[in-house]
């Protein structure tokens, strides 16, 4: 079974910096929306996989890691638009226009909810 390390949202930046320092690459960021928002950041070094999990309340804000991993901006924009996670200070923030979906729907991440 794979390990999922649970951390608080304030530790995200320091953990991500450490990962970058250890030459891990960001494999993906995923979000699960059930009774809570559940963000999983996966880091890959050669063939090891490290997963970091952060649980958030719906209206909680979280820092972007796009300052550390520049390409995280794609994942973060996606999560922001489809799940309505409040990710702050993304290096290239599309503000809801990354996915060309009707604006009225993508504002609060309603698209993901309604299917």
């Amino acid at each position: 079974m794979q390990n999922f390390k649970i951390i608080g949202k304030d530790d995200l930046l320091s953990v991500a910096t450490q990962m970058k320092y250890d030459h891990y690459r960001l494999a993906q960021i995923s979000c699960t929306k059930k009774d809570k928002l559940d963000l999983v950041y996966s880091f890959v070094k050669d063939y090891d996989l490290e997963n970091i999990r952060i649980e958030l309340e719906f209206d909680e804000e979280i820092e972007s890691i796009s300052g550390i991993y520049s390409y995280a901006f794609l994942y973060e924009n996606e999560i922001k638009e489809l799940f309505g996670v409040k990710i702050m200070r993304i290096s290239l923030d599309f503000n809801g226009t990354f996915y060309k979906i009707k604006k009225t729907e993508s504002k609060n991440g309603e698209v993901a909810q309604n299917g």
């Binding site: 494999a27 993906q28 995923s30 699960t32 996966s42 520049s70 390409y71 794609l74």
Partner: peptide, 26 residues
């Protein structure tokens, strides 16, 4: 990358795909 999360019922909670093109865009 395929992520699957099951909850013990026959419907999965979450399935996520990170496809290669997404990683190759940057």
């Amino acid at each position: 990358v395929y992520y699957v999360k099951g909850n013990g019922t026959k419907f999965l909670d979450r399935m996520r795909v990170r496809t290669p093109t997404f990683a190759n865009l940057p």
